[in-house]
Design a protein around this nucleic acid. Structure first.
Lengths: 215, 215, 215, 215
DNA sequence: TATGAATGAGCATTCATTCAT
DNA sequence: TATGAATGAATGCTCATTCAT
């Protein structure tokens, strides 16, 4: 009983409580979305009274922002950790995509909060998610440019790289969403499919093998 | 007084009223999102009292669903009209993409409601949007299969077509979103970029030019 | 029963509801003070649901402001009605004071809200009450100046009139407060006492019969 | 570490802590009023944790009462010290008024708490402030009676003295309030104005020079 | 048909107050 | 003695929804 008391003990240090609260909030926001989530449910799930939430993490909006930031940070770290290294650009992109799908597979709630909820909520949240997205696009863009330089960059390719990067990031997001409803596929396979779609197509573009309406 | 009554548009036939209401609702939902949109504002913008809205179109959720359905129908018609004809699969996809971007460019509000708001709202709405998405994916999938059959379908390609279609649809959506922030690009150019990314990459896949991690 | 239904009937025109609400609010604010008064109690006393209060009269602060303004207006009208006429200044002041005490005697709650609650509430309310007070002071000041001119105005009197007016208004207010705890005195008597204190003293001052510490 | 402990003022004797707390409370109550003052701010300003406040001075209401009592005591002592002595009644009143205005001028916060906040708060506080007020009125009343006896007391004067005293006290309070907005006047001048208004008027009343409506 | 009038029910937020250490 | 941690209880306010006319 002593141990039990300790386990479920009140009077925990602030940092611990903050993590409990954030964990609960991510769960609740991912379940109901920002608006339909109630602070009451967050407090209940966290096992912490509402005043503590307000004392430690501020308003509902602040709390949501803190969730977004924490999860976005985790995702970005996972992806950059995958990209890191001395590999060729294609391998880097491959590792990044694989890391991305692995993260989504392992943190469903995080992904739901980040992608589905934050996107629909105007203002500071879209901004923060948008900023993360821009970092991702910049990362991919850098890889594409490096790769293209190796292969020689055509004029058409140069103009398109950023949009290509945006499309690639977007398709990865969408594929992740699609995956939530088709869970019987491995993350590795998803990543390789996307690589083929994107990398080979981009490679053709760079190589001058361009598709045009008239062709 | 008769004239006055006419001026203030009373006693209109039901169909007209319904259109007024739906138009207003699309506008309001696209401006504030589902939750922050108030029935009061819809009724004000529509110039119709709230009880009429409830009488004609049901609850707020029903109303939102009706918006989604109407706009989705319009979009889908636009795209299929583009695809129609005796063209080769690639030209059909091209026309479909062009039609899609043209529609988004010309109906910003519709697109916002469809993509941004509906995605974040669980339950029946995701379902309806998801159904439309599935129709789009099926359409693209059909084109890919036809094209692949022409070129001879590898095992890898066969397994991948649906996911490829999903990724392509998703990247089109994302590119459309991206476009909202980069409006100085023509819809035609967007469509051709995406064709290159998707079609050429898919073509390589079909042709057996496969990217693999070890390569 | 028809009649009963009519009496307590819902669906009353807006103006009537607004008066009901204001009446209830004055009562509740005078009972508990601004902060301890709850909108729930106002709505209960008024026999009107809270949303109506907010729809018709705005926030709690707005509602309080509306009370203040209405009661202040009533009081000021009563006093100026008393002052009106072609009487000599002293008679005018007398009538004003008598009207003031009569009003306070007949509208206890109004007076409590005006004097006790509003004074302690910073910002716009003190301002509004303060403005009414300034109007009252100006009114008295005018009477004092007219009277002094008739009797010849000494230098000391000239410098003091405004402060005298302020002191007189203040002592009337305080006497009214004191009266709330000593209700067995007629308003007429109160007014005449104050006349003697103020008018005769001021008259002496004007006449040069000055009290000084050294005398 | 011992020194550090001393620096942060821990382990002080109870009396010192209580004074710290009361000083802070007077400041905070005068700044925000009773309701808008938070115990958190009091504890912060006092540099003492909230549980100490509750241990030493009880609830918020108790704390407020303690403030009122202490400040009222100070004010009353200042005034009685002014009145003390073998002077004639008028000089005593004069000294009392001068002492009153001096106190208000030198202890703005105390005055605000006493007059503005306490007045608006029903129950025990009005009672305590009222008690102090009654002591002041009794003091003044005594002076008036002594003075009147010297000059021969008319029937009208006898009945009026207490109300006169109340009015005088009230006008002093109101003039003090008015002074807060007109600070460029000396306390001495205020006192002398009030003496003239009150004393001379009262003197006339005593002397039988009565103002009546018909005169 | 059409609407002004009305409300039930819920939610974010705050604060005086008290344990457990 | 002294406090960081924790909460019960209340309150202002909003909004989808529905009568009575």
């Amino acid at each position: 009983m002593e141990v039990d008391e300790r386990r479920r003990s009140r009077r925990l240090p602030r940092a611990v409580r903050e993590r409990q609260i954030l964990d609960a909030a991510v769960l609740v926001f991912s379940r109901h979305g920002y608006h339909d989530a109630s602070m009451d449910e967050v407090s209940e799930v966290a096992g912490v009274s509402k005043p503590m939430i307000y004392a430690y993490l501020g308003s509902k909006e602040d709390l949501f922002g803190a969730c977004i930031r924490r999860e976005a940070q985790l995702l970005f770290e996972a992806v950059t950790a995958g990209v890191q290294g001395e590999h060729a650009p294609d391998m880097q992109l491959w590792h990044g995509l694989a890391a991305f799908f692995r993260f989504v597979g392992e943190h469903r709630e995080s992904w739901r909060v980040l992608h589905r909820q934050a996107a629909s909520h105007g203002g500071p949240f879209s901004d923060e998610v948008g900023a993360m997205r821009d970092r991702a696009i910049a990362l991919v863009d850098g890889l594409l440019v490096r790769s293209a330089k190796r292969r020689g960059l055509t004029e058409q390719a140069r103009r398109a790289t950023e949009a290509m990067a945006a499309a690639l990031v977007g398709s990865a997001e969408s594929l992740a969403d699609w995956w939530l409803d088709h869970p019987d596929i491995s993350d590795q396979l998803l990543a390789s499919w996307l690589m083929n779609l994107a990398w080979m197509g981009f490679g053709d573009l760079v190589a001058g093998k361009v598709w045009t309406p008239s062709s």
